[in-house]
Design a protein around this nucleic acid. Structure first.
Lengths: 155, 155
DNA sequence: CTGCCTGCAAACTCTTTGCACGAAT
DNA sequence: ATTCGTGCAAAGAGTTTGCAGGCAG
């Protein structure tokens, strides 16, 4: 699907839900969909402001749930205090995250059988699974060899 | 292992690490190990204070990492804002959580092959897995039938 | 015109930290 | 006697919310 078609889909989603199409929501949409890697709410605010400098932090926080519910973004919580977001490109619900223990970088990867595995696990308790998430903490090769991840930016 | 033996193990752990055995740490230990279900830092504070009312919130937060590192407690983050803890009883690293979408209650369950699965996933990226977590959101039978989980306490 | 949406700033929740006092070794 | 541990309260980080004015429909 082209970028423009996706943008129209977002407008249609807003309208269908009785929500208004505002310049701020579109700026946030454009900023989010242009990202190739995981981003935080704060980073999204920064990018959205380059498109429309009237965008506020509050509106970013109010728009993120809308984009998540509309399946445009996937929310990823790796327990680091802040949430990350990524445009949904595919993989459906069979996506796992691998997080580097050193730099905190997040990799997404298709995890076949994940739904089946989650179902098997939860059905042992007689519950019906709604969703599952698999997250793996891992060391990259460079980290094991040099005690430092090449992607690390902090510290 | 008996409760007393476990308590002695905790004291030995503290001493070995050059940490002091204080009445507050022991009260927190006793309060935590007596729990059968997942608890929060706040709940632990409440229980610990019934044993020793001098225990402060700060000390609870400072003691939790010690108990987690010593393998006495397992830390569980389901992305709800607050962390949960549970005495480690078994299952090693092959433990998954099933969370009820309605009441938020957490069930722990042995998930065979989880390590293997996490390894398989992360090795696709050439990374060496350190740990993995599998969490499933699910509906219980009662919730599906009546739109309400019998264990729900809030709302 | 209505009423949803906005920016601002304050509020909130959970957790961490600086400080001076007190207790364990 | 040292030094670490403690309670208290303030600080911190990320997110949410009340309000008065603004803009979409």
């Amino acid at each position: 699907m082209s970028a423009d078609a996706s943008r129209e889909k977002f407008k249609a989603y807003l309208t269908a839900k009785g929500l208004r199409v505002t310049s701020q929501r579109l700026a946030i949409y454009d900023a989010a969909l242009a990202r190739k890697e995981h981003f935080t709410a704060e980073q999204l605010l920064e990018h959205a402001r380059r498109i429309d400098d009237s965008v506020s932090r509050a509106t970013v926080y109010r728009t993120l749930p809308i984009m998540t519910e509309s399946q445009l973004l996937r929310e990823v919580d790796i327990g680091s205090g802040e949430k990350f977001y990524l445009p949904v490109t595919g993989g459906g619900t069979q996506v796992a995250q691998v997080v580097c223990v050193d730099c905190g970088r997040i990799f997404e990867i298709i995890a076949p059988f994940m739904e089946w595995y989650g179902s098997t696990v939860s059905q042992k308790l007689g519950l019906k699974p709604v969703s599952q998430r698999l997250q793996v903490s891992a060391q990259c090769i460079a980290y094991r060899q040099h005690g430092r991840c090449p992607n690390r930016t902090k510290k």
